[in-house]
Design a protein around this nucleic acid. Structure first.
Lengths: 164, 164
DNA sequence: ATCCTTTGCATAGCTTGCTATCAAATCGCA
DNA sequence: TGCGATTTGATAGCAAGCTATGCAAAGGAT
């Protein structure tokens, strides 16, 4: 039954961060990055470099633009990450054969050699997070994250009006 | 039935980032931050400032150390965030009454006034992400994120041996 | 052929995360 | 009492995310 409670001057728990998906997503992502970083640091890698390598290991010679589209980061972010990777001897930027503006990103031998240990590190970190879950639970978890991503992408302010 | 396939020189899809929880968690968190930022930017707020305000709105006068523990970021990160908030007139650092090292963080009127619109923005973003999910699904999703967080925290290398 | 727009990349400047150090204050204990 | 160890906070330096700009090359339309 509904009863009247004395009105508090300060509203309590108006927004509970410990129950906010956005807050928890941020926390979880920071922890993922930390655990990954401590494991790949000995390889001379940082998390965003590993992310870029994941794509380049499969598709050597992509342009910066293609990487940007596949990894969904801003062009400027990718340009800076690639510069650090070039500095560290992981990639080379070679001229594009038919477009003088573009450059093809090619892996060095060093970068190719890091594939197995780096991927093993990432699998280790995923296992930490998913530890107790069954295969079905993991699939459902991943599915929900993907649904959340889709919802957040639709919510983009600058979204193009459909059909253009 | 198991058949032998020709051995590829390059292992294909050794690690599929589109199925990696860590990769997806990073992507989801970036999108959450982007959607939140576009909504609270007009208020003069950035995401980490909002996160700190969530705690200070409930507990004005915490020390930096207390904020660090509650939000699980490094002390240096919090010190810098607080400096920007001070610069922007959101907080004041006042002397602690019994410990000359510590400072109490107090909100300004401006910060207090931003509570309602900022929390509304955050709720909007959460709704974008959770859009179609039922209440039960949301609870389960949040529960799994928390389990992942717990697993990742245990996996901390520098963890203290239990009982010390 | 010549403009104008679009595209690919680089750069500057900002926030937020991290590690590593440092100074000052406090605490604990001999 | 005093001294070493711990604690609190600031600062430097780096990675990686973002927006905003600028430039040169490519493409398109007239």
């Amino acid at each position: 039954m509904q009863v009247y409670l004395p009105r508090m001057t300060t509203p309590t728990s108006t927004f509970d961060r410990t129950r906010s998906t956005g807050y928890l997503a941020n926390h979880m992502a920071r922890l993922f990055a930390q655990r990954l970083h401590e494991r790949i640091r000995p390889l001379g890698l940082a998390p965003a470099q590993f992310m870029s390598l994941l794509e380049l290991w499969e598709n050597d010679g992509l342009t910066q633009r293609e990487l940007v589209e596949r990894l969904d980061v801003e062009q400027a972010t990718m340009a800076n990450t690639l510069s650090r990777m070039e500095r560290d001897g992981l990639i080379e930027r070679r001229a594009h054969e038919s477009d003088a503006r573009a450059k093809r990103i090619h892996l060095t031998d060093r970068a190719r050699a890091l594939r197995a240990p780096a991927e093993a590190a990432a699998r280790e970190v995923n296992a930490l997070a998913l530890g107790q879950m069954s295969a079905e639970e993991r699939d459902q978890f991943v599915g929900w994250i993907k649904r959340a991503i889709a919802g957040l992408q639709e919510g983009d302010e600058g979204e193009e009006p459909a059909g253009r």
